[in-house]
Design a protein around this nucleic acid. Structure first.
Lengths: 115, 115
DNA sequence: CCTTTCTACAACCATACGGTTGTACGTTAG
DNA sequence: CTAACGTACAACCGTATGGTTGTAGAAAGG
């Protein structure tokens, strides 16, 4: 995940209601109206929040009868995790140079920095 | 950090330019115009991005002569990290402890029993 | 002095966001 | 069939966002 994908994930997480929904549905599935009953806003508003989370890949939906069960996708949470890890890795290597961590450039690149 | 604080941090991270700025300034300080030269937008636009990051606590500024050096605040990155950790912890514990939480799971038997 | 550089901030604009209400459709219950 | 429930989506509204340009001040250099 990078670029627009990370944009979508972090934007989806930048709302207390949406973070709360994710925290709920990673513990177990809930229908959309089940979620809507928990928040002081209209059903359509909660529906939009779920749609934002779904576009970001943080939740998925699947029909069960006339309900739509929402499930949390913890893998996408971990991808956001990884983006923050990269930043922290840059911070740790700020005095020397960037080590061969899980960051994007897998090329050893024998460039000979000070020669 | 919670609520509005987390909102601000995740919103600040929900932009590729801003994440890139954070990745730069955690490695070392940069002046605002130094940053502005790196992106295909106006100085004022970059200035606004830095302001968003500063309000979120992801960077700090301090004057050095006529320049304003921007420094990354990795502690705030770690706080965002922690929010994601909490969500993942909920996911890991989803099967074990369904006992005393406020999750209000639908009672499997006697559906009309709820008073 | 005057000029340049770096910064700050206001005004403006197009678009997106977060919320609302209303309408419509499929599914289950009577 | 009819009614109720769960969902989906469109239209609308106020505000925020991300960008622009322009103006203005403070610090360094000629």
């Amino acid at each position: 995940m990078s670029g627009a994908g990370a944009d979508r994930v972090f934007h989806a997480l930048a709302d207390t209601t949406r973070r709360d929904i994710v925290a709920l549905v990673v513990q177990g599935e809930h229908s959309v109206s089940d979620l809507a009953r928990r928040y002081p806003m209209s059903f359509a508003a909660v529906q939009k929040h779920v749609a934002v989370l779904e576009r970001a890949g943080l939740v998925s939906k699947h029909r069960l009868g006339r309900e739509q069960r929402v499930r949390g996708e913890v893998g996408t949470v971990r991808e956001a995790h990884r983006v923050l890890d990269q930043i922290e890795a840059l911070w740790q290597g700020r005095l020397g140079r960037i080590e061969d961590l899980v960051t994007s450039p897998p090329i050893p690149d024998s460039k000979g920095d000070t020669s």
